[in-house]
């Protein structure tokens, strides 16, 4: 439903987005990740028609965003960065304004507003002016505005920024509930969010896609993927370290003392499943195991390894 081909945006000498191509289908929730200034927001601004691309094009539900902007924009629900809204209006007035612009009238408009107000839990602040609302409520007004016309395509720039953990949870639940019927792009800094709601994660750095896969696939790139962490009393530290290191599937071992316990993380050789070996070893050796778990991988570590400048340099030299 969202098709991007060779999208490029230059601001003077700076290339913010560089030849980006992407397709998002119905039912997908695409998590858009990247360091600050990587081009996430710029890409979203081009998809929604706020910025004109320097090259390439974006289509939403078959409508070219530049050529057929109105039709494309009618199909999009957009939460811009910072959830801007008219501060002098009350939440109710603002949502009715959006409803009217989206072509709903009278009772239909009121019913639409009523329904999104329920979904975003805004009942308590409906008649407060938006300027006086807390950051969390403002964000939810922005969300309500974006989903008001039940759009087939939803684009949200940091939808949970500034929300407390409960609010984050309810927004994520809401996104998951809508996911099947829509194509959704969510930009975020929160890696846990990607694991919680996204069916696909795209990492961009300096305007280019550097990783694209399911959260699981990205996790498997992690050094921690399939690693095993085991905690034993400090007294057993040396035997545990040597025995684990001796396992054929173990590539390397890291350990640190902590509250009288010694915590060892064993990293697996490529695609080896370590947990069985380590637990069998522990039983055999009759270690006093306090904790034993397999690591799925750490997204933040993957993120850092792909997007840091060192990684970029080594990629460049390898190419």
């Amino acid at each position: 439903m969202i098709e991007i081909e060779g999208l490029t945006k230059r601001f003077g000498p700076v290339t913010a987005v560089n030849d980006l191509s992407l397709r998002v289908a119905k039912g997908e929730v695409l998590g858009f990740l990247g360091p600050n200034g990587a081009g996430k927001s710029t890409t979203m601004k081009m998809i929604t028609g706020f910025l004109a691309p320097s090259a390439g094009r974006a289509r939403v539900c078959g409508h070219d965003v530049e050529m057929d902007a109105i039709a494309a924009q009618a199909a999009i629900g957009y939460l811009p960065e910072g959830a801007p809204a008219y501060g002098d209006m009350t939440a109710r007035q603002f949502l009715l304004f959006i409803a009217e612009i989206r072509g709903f009238k009278g009772t239909v408009a009121r019913a639409r507003v009523q329904s999104v107000v329920g979904k975003t839990e805004l009942e308590g602040v409906l008649d407060q002016s938006i300027a006086t609302l807390s950051k969390g409520f403002k964000r939810r007004v922005g969300l309500a505005q974006a989903i008001l016309h039940d759009p087939p395509v939803l684009i949200m720039d940091e939808p949970t920024d500034g929300l407390d953990p409960n609010q984050k949870h309810s927004v994520r639940t809401m996104i998951r509930a809508m996911a099947a019927e829509k194509a959704i792009i969510v930009s975020t800094h929160l890696l846990e969010e990607v694991e919680a709601i996204c069916t696909r994660a795209v990492i961009i750095d300096r305007g280019q896609i550097v990783a694209d896969g399911t959260p699981g696939e990205l996790l498997s790139r992690s050094r921690y993927h399939n690693a095993v962490t085991i905690a034993v009393p400090e007294a057993q530290r040396d035997t545990v370290l040597t025995k684990i290191k001796a396992l054929p599937a173990v590539a390397s071992v890291e350990g640190a003392g902590h509250d009288g316990l010694f915590v060892v993380t064993a990293f697996a050789r490529k695609s080896a499943l370590l947990i069985e070996d380590v637990s069998a070893l522990a039983v055999r050796e009759k270690w006093d195991v306090r904790e034993l778990r397999a690591e799925a991988g750490r997204l933040d570590e993957v993120f850092r390894s792909i997007t840091t400048h060192d990684a970029a340099r080594s990629r460049a030299s390898a190419a």
């Binding site: 929604t48 028609g49 706020f50 109105i70 009618a74 957009y78 811009p80 960065e81 801007p84 989206r102």
Partner: peptide
């Protein structure tokens, strides 16, 4: 105030 982005992305 950033509302420009909201206003200009409405159909």
């Amino acid at each position: 105030s950033g509302t420009m982005e909201l206003l200009l992305t409405l159909p």
